[in-house]
Amino acid sequence: MVGQRSCVEEKMIKKMDALGNCDELDVKAAVMNRVMAIHDQQKTMGGEMTNLRDERESFSETGDPVMQKQAKILPHPSKFRKRLLSGVSAAVLLGMLGFGALQLSGLGDLTEHGSQSTIDITQPPDGAITLVNSGGKAIVQTVHYNTPIPSTSPAIEKYLSLLATYKEQVLAHLNAGEMAAYYVNDTEFTKLAKGLGYGNQLQFAFSSPVYSNHQDFVKKLKGTGDFWPELPSILANGYEFEYATFKAAPPYWPIDKEYKEMLEQFLKKAKVDKTGQKLFMEKIAVNAIESAEVTYHKGDQTIELSLNQSTYMGGISQVSILEGQTAEKWSMTGTGKEAVFIAASTEKGEQTWSSRNLLYWYDEASQTIRSLNDGLNESLTREQWQVIANSFIR
Rank of each mutant, 00 (worst) to 15 (best):
L52W: 13
R53M: 10
D54T: 03
R56G: 04
E57P: 08
E57L: 05
S58V: 01
F59L: 01
F59A: 00
S60C: 08
E61T: 11
E61G: 04
E61D: 13
T62L: 04
G63S: 12
D64M: 10
D64Q: 10
P65Q: 07
M67N: 09
M67C: 13
Q68D: 15
Q68R: 15
K69E: 15
Q70N: 14
K72F: 13
I73F: 08
I73N: 06
L74G: 08
L74V: 07
P75E: 11
P75R: 10
H76Q: 11
P77S: 10
S78T: 10
S78F: 12
F80H: 11
F80M: 07
R81M: 11
K82E: 14
K82H: 09
K82Q: 12
R83I: 09
R83Y: 02
L84R: 11
L84K: 06
L85N: 09
L85Q: 14
G87S: 10
G87D: 10
V88W: 08
A90W: 00
L93M: 09
L94D: 15
L97C: 06
G98W: 01
F99A: 03
F99G: 03
A101N: 14
L102W: 06
Q103K: 09
Q103S: 08
L104I: 02
L104Q: 03
S105P: 08
L107S: 13
L107I: 10
L107W: 06
L110R: 12
L110P: 05
T111P: 02
T111R: 12
T111Q: 03
H113S: 08
S115D: 07
S115A: 08
Q116D: 03
Q116K: 15
S117N: 03
S117I: 02
T118N: 13
T118I: 02
I119G: 08
D120N: 00
T122A: 01
P125H: 07
D126T: 03
D126L: 01
G127F: 00
G127C: 00
A128V: 04
I129R: 02
T130C: 12
T130Q: 14
N133Q: 03
S134G: 14
G135S: 07
G136R: 12
G136D: 14
G136Q: 13
K137H: 06
K137D: 11
A138W: 01
Q141V: 03
T142N: 05
V143M: 06
H144S: 06
Y145F: 06
Y145E: 04
T147H: 03
I149H: 03
I149Q: 06
P150E: 03
P150A: 10
S151C: 04
S151D: 00
P154D: 05
P154N: 00
A155I: 02
A155Y: 00
A155D: 07
I156H: 09
E157R: 07
E157D: 09
K158E: 03
Y159G: 02
L160P: 04
L160S: 02
S161D: 04
